[in-house]
């Protein structure tokens, strides 16, 4: 089975994110007053062949950690798994 696994890398909460702050101040706040904060990060998409979504997630987490795709001193990660139903993404 092929899974689309998304890796999102964001600055940790205490670490300033000037890109997100700029988007918040100059774009978001002009349109809506209901958005308290905006964070910008990096998005990496993997096509993973795996027997289960759990394994696919594990593989990407391992790549992120061992390959240092993020820097744990300053970043946090979000990993999301989607089954590739029609191969059209």
């Amino acid at each position: 089975m092929i899974y689309k696994v998304e890796l999102i890398i964001l600055n940790k909460d205490g670490i300033r994110d000037p890109e997100g702050e700029t988007i918040q101040k100059y774009v978001v706040e002009k349109i809506s007053k209901n958005v308290n904060s905006t964070r910008a990060g990096k998005y990496i998409l993997f096509n993973v062949e795996s027997s289960s979504p759990e394994d696919a997630e594990k593989t990407v987490k391992r790549i992120a950690e061992e390959g240092r795709l993020y820097n744990p001193i300053v970043h946090k990660i979000i990993v999301r798994v989607n089954r590739d139903e029609d191969g059209d993404y």
Binding site: I15, R16, P18, T22, N71, I73
Partner: peptide, 16 residues
């Protein structure tokens, strides 16, 4: 820093 030979991290400049 990325290789762990020195402590800490270097982030994008605050003014980007």
């Amino acid at each position: 820093v990325e290789g762990g030979l020195l402590e800490g991290a270097l982030l994008p400049n605050l003014n980007l």
